[in-house]
Amino acid sequence: MLLYTRRAQRIAWAVFGFFFLLLFVLPFGILVLAAFTRQWNGAFPSSYTFSNITAAFHKDPLDGLETSLITAFVSSVIALAVGTWAALALDAMRNRGGKALIQTVFMLPIAVPSVVVGLALLVAFSQGPVLLNGTSTIVVMAHCILVTAYAFQQLSAAITRLDPAYEQAAASLGARPYYSLLRVKLPLLLPALTGSLALCFALSMGELGATAMVYTSHWTTLPLRIYALDDRGHQFVAAAVTAVMMTITLAVLLAISKIRTRANFR
């Protein structure tokens, strides 16, 4: 508690409410409003329609949605596997140099602009032995690289927080390392695993920079199609597609967090 007079508290809340509504809540409200707008000539939409929403489920955006969902699922599952592996390897590594190496390599994609990640893939796989330019693989690959860093970071933080007593108890009962990894460590990490799966999924759904570099016409993710719609002046449809995308993303996040409740022991 910082403010003790009723008046000062009210002022603080008013300041908070002003900024919070104006900057964080209003944009969402407007987006939803725009999604249902046919015409907007005055301060408020002059007529409303469902056609933007139905347009969002027509061929083009629907294709994009499918592309985005597949890309996000595949890349976040791969990222989780690789990120978890790297985080476990980091935990097992006793050598300081080795630790630093793993950390640097796996944090690097956070520091490198996503556009540059895309550019690098484009430069490397447009020539040479492995030709991936123009395939869906290169898009998934870009997403994998970007979100693996976040999965790694989340998991290694969770592993540091894990009480070593559990693993030691398992070992004292005769559990070999792989057995205690499977039966003790990973189950205890389950909340962190689902949490970072959700994060990776959301980040991949909204990814724009790297995808803009490597996408092809037959593998165009939803954000890029929203960009195109916006660019061509179909703002209301763009808003509708964005709203649909957010709803679906939130639904998936909610579904993933449901896995959590059974795994949350403590």
């Binding site: 690789v82 790297a86 980091l90 050598n95 080795g98 793993i102 390599v105 490198v112 893939l121 690289i145």
Partner: peptide
């Protein structure tokens, strides 16, 4: 063993990201 376990993910990321970079 620790190095053995660390190598595959590092190699993977090196091939997919560090080399392109």
């Amino acid at each position: 063993t620790a190095w053995l376990w660390s190598t595959p993910p590092i190699l993977l990321l090196a091939a997919a990201f560090l080399y392109p970079l």
